[in-house]
Amino acid sequence: MTWTDLKTALAGDGYVASDDLAVALQLALSLGRPLLLEGAAGVGKTEIARALAQVRDTRLIRLQCYEGLDAAQAIYEWNYQRQLLTIRAAAEGGETGKAVEDRIFSRDFLLERPLLAAITQEVAPVLLIDEIDRADEEFEAYLLEILSDFQVSIPELGTITAVTRPVVILTSNGTRDLSDALRRRCLYTYVEYPDRVTELNILKARCPDVEARLADQIVGFVQKLREEDLEKTPGIAEMLDFAAALMGLGIADLTESPAVLQSTLTTLLKTQSDQAQVTPEVAGRIAGKAA
């Protein structure tokens, strides 16, 4: 499969990827390297993993990172409660010693967390490590080990080696700089906000019912809005919500009713100061330019 095939396949699934992103994805697949995606919130970094899983017809395993994420939540954990109950039951049944011990430290009592689950699948899944920049640096080091060896050591069970190599996609919003070691191991792509044509294609792929003229206006409006000095720039998901809201209200032209336009702006502007800044006059001006 070349990158153009991949791009077409993704487009068939409703994800319009830029050429840069398609090439990087194709390389990540063929070279077996993790792919690190950076970019502003709402440019479709997480969505690409879902689309890729759809295209390859495999599972998507997602690990959402947060501050304080540790190995127990990311890799594996013993099911303590079940182990305790088993010990109690075994003691009443007169079973003791090594047999019980072997039983409670078997795979049945292991709770698989995303990273372990990802390497034990029969069919290579897509592993999405979302917002890696939120996790602590210690966790990043741990992740590096797994990403390079694709194996996990469990003291009681021994080493579990990957059956298949998952396709790994990492995303980062840049709340902190990632370590050089992690960057070096990954392929890298910076995902920009899409240009007008791409965004129009996205809108058409996601909301096929929207009329061409309105679609053009919506995309033009959002693109112009991104140039305004806002606290939180609207992403693609917001644009789709906006389109859905307009269609739900049966609007055919953005400039037709300023009051309705203003009320639907709640789908695009997510902070109080942004809403205060984009007054009906400003919205009208932008809509006029976009039309």
């Binding site: 990158w3 390389l27 990540a28 990954c186 890298y188 792509t189």
Partner: peptide
């Protein structure tokens, strides 16, 4: 992996590999 004869494709591929931020 890519069609290396075409410069823009090589550029994309190398950019994914060689850059980190």
């Amino acid at each position: 992996e890519v069609d290396a004869v075409r410069p823009e494709e090589s550029c994309r591929a190398l950019r994914a590999v060689c850059t980190g931020c």
